[in-house]
Design a binder for these strands. Structure first.
Lengths: 214, 214
DNA sequence: GTCTATAGACGGATAGAC
DNA sequence: GTCTATCCGTCTATAGAC
């Protein structure tokens, strides 16, 4: 379902294909369990069990538990950094802002479970070893994105609104992509990804676009 | 700084008053560490150390580690439930929506570290024992708040915007209350609570207010 | 590539003295 | 109300056979 970066020559799994890449299966299961029950509450034994192997096998594919996390957050941050770099090279127009938000939403939606995992394990990520490296560093990236959206000399109000646009966009995507509204809700339940993307983009634009000059 | 519910007759600590209530001091330190380093990565030994007592002492005041968490989330959810109940008793007007958002923001801001803790430990809370009880249950409460904001027959778009308003409001409050914009930012840095409250309220109203009838 | 076995550490929690 | 001492479980990680 979600794009797990294979970071080495990956063949297509033939639809539910069991045999294939153990490494990818580890990532998939780990991500799922980390997101659902939390990083620390998910033991390697648990992951191994779900895969039908033993703990020791995991260590053949990853050098540590944290390394598993790195393997899928890495890709996400690479995309984000690419977006920032792109944004910094654009003229500071409203058009640029809209496109930035559009791309940002795409990244969040395509990252699928990865973003959900990060959202739900913030405390863990912030504290972990690789938190000191270049991953998990939300804050500087958020600031960079905000600056692209508002320009360098924006008021506090503008900055807050820009940040809120990003918060709202990503959180909404996460929340409405899987958990949906309510299990028993009757109405137009199946809003597909494109529909959701459109609604969220519009909402983010409303926030980031109003610079308070009225 | 933050309102830690003392849930028994609490006297005022005389300004930095060391001696007083050990129970309250445990809550304070625990909340701080849980929020900063994560619930699971914070051991009771660590908390005890910071207080200059031993682990065993903690068990005199709380029956378990999770019980410490319960002691400060309980109050937060009580306030939220009270807000929901209030909202459900109001006429479904734009005025009600604004006031709901206003009160919601107040709750988040006054909860201080508690909300931050919950945000950063979602995975843990969702999974924990008391997650099956009445705490940590964000989802049903969010749905209730959304329904008050939009009314029962709202479009998916309206609901998403209302939810986004709540997401954006709470996250913005958290983010800009302590971590501030950027450490080295030059401009109007010290926006006080009232100023922040106002900006966030306005932004939330913009989201929740536009029902797409234009 | 996967297994068995185990090291080595640390966690939450309790008993009972003071 | 706080301490010392300890139990027991689980965890990550590694060594080495197959």
């Amino acid at each position: 379902m979600d794009a797990i970066p294979t970071d080495h020559g990956s063949e297509e799994l033939p639809q539910g294909g069991r045999r294939g890449d153990t490494r990818a299966r580890i990532q998939q299961i780990a991500l799922e369990l980390f997101a659902e029950h939390g990083y620390e509450r998910t033991s390697l034994r648990e992951i191994a069990e779900r895969l039908g192997v033993t703990k020791a096998a995991l260590y053949y594919h990853f050098k540590s538990k944290e390394d598993i996390v790195r393997s899928f957050t890495e890709d996400y941050f690479d995309r984000l950094d690419a977006l920032i770099e792109w944004g910094q090279g654009q003229p500071p127009t409203a058009q640029t802002a809209s496109e930035l938000l559009d791309r940002y939403i795409s990244i969040v939606m395509e990252s699928g479970e990865v973003f959900r995992f990060m959202e739900r394990n913030q405390a863990t990520l912030r504290d972990s070893d690789h938190g000191k490296h270049r991953f998990t560093q939300f804050r500087p990236r958020l600031n960079a994105l905000v600056e692209i959206l508002t320009g360098p000399d924006a008021t506090a109000r503008s900055r807050i609104r820009a940040a809120a646009a990003l918060f709202a966009a990503s959180t909404s995507c996460m929340f409405f992509m899987k958990d949906a509204l309510a299990p028993e809700a009757d109405q137009t339940q199946h809003l597909d990804r494109d529909e959701l993307h459109k609604i969220v983009l519009e909402l983010a634009e409303d926030l980031a676009g109003d610079t308070g000059e009225a």
